[in-house]
């Protein structure tokens, strides 16, 4: 019968009218990212043995590690910095770490106003833990 298609079309659209919306209310509601998303890094200072494998594994030379010897002539981490503007988030650093000290996080809001702020200081020996200072926060 004529007009069946019209009714079918109307019924299809009204279903979409009541179905859940796919729009993400981004700044208020954080998106649900797939597990494999790597966007930020954190360093477990207790686990890190300052071997420097992560710095070697990095294809873009993002990671700078400064070490020092302690009183037992053991290598100790002095400074761990990631220059995030060159990071391609491949995750090879986290993969290569023998003690799993460097871990990936899903906080992707890394935008910063100036080039200096893109540097991510994950550890500095004589300073308070620097990991909490999110990039872009200190304008």
């Amino acid at each position: 019968m004529n007009g069946q298609g019209l009714i079918k079309g109307l019924s299809v659209t009204i279903k979409h009218f009541f179905s859940p919306k796919i729009t993400e209310l981004y700044p208020e509601v954080k998106p649900k990212l797939p597990e494999s998303v790597k966007a930020d890094f954190d360093l477990d200072r207790e686990k890190c043995i300052a071997c420097g494998i992560c710095a070697n594994a990095c294809p873009n030379k993002v990671i700078t590690i400064e070490t020092e010897k302690d009183e037992n002539n053991k290598r100790r981490l002095k400074r761990y910095e990631m220059n995030m503007q060159y990071c391609l988030f491949c995750g090879l650093c986290a993969e290569s770490c023998p003690t799993k000290a460097i871990i990936t996080k899903q906080n992707f809001e890394l935008a910063a106003y100036s080039r200096e702020n893109t540097k991510r200081l994950l550890y500095q020996a004589d300073k308070a833990p620097a990991s909490e200072t999110e990039p872009g926060a200190k304008e």
């Binding site: 979409h16 009218f17 859940p20 729009t23 209310l25």
Partner: peptide
């Protein structure tokens, strides 16, 4: 809003 809802968006909000 209605147009948005029909297209599974939210429209102006």
């Amino acid at each position: 809003r209605v147009a948005g809802f029909f297209q599974e968006r939210l429209g102006p909000n």
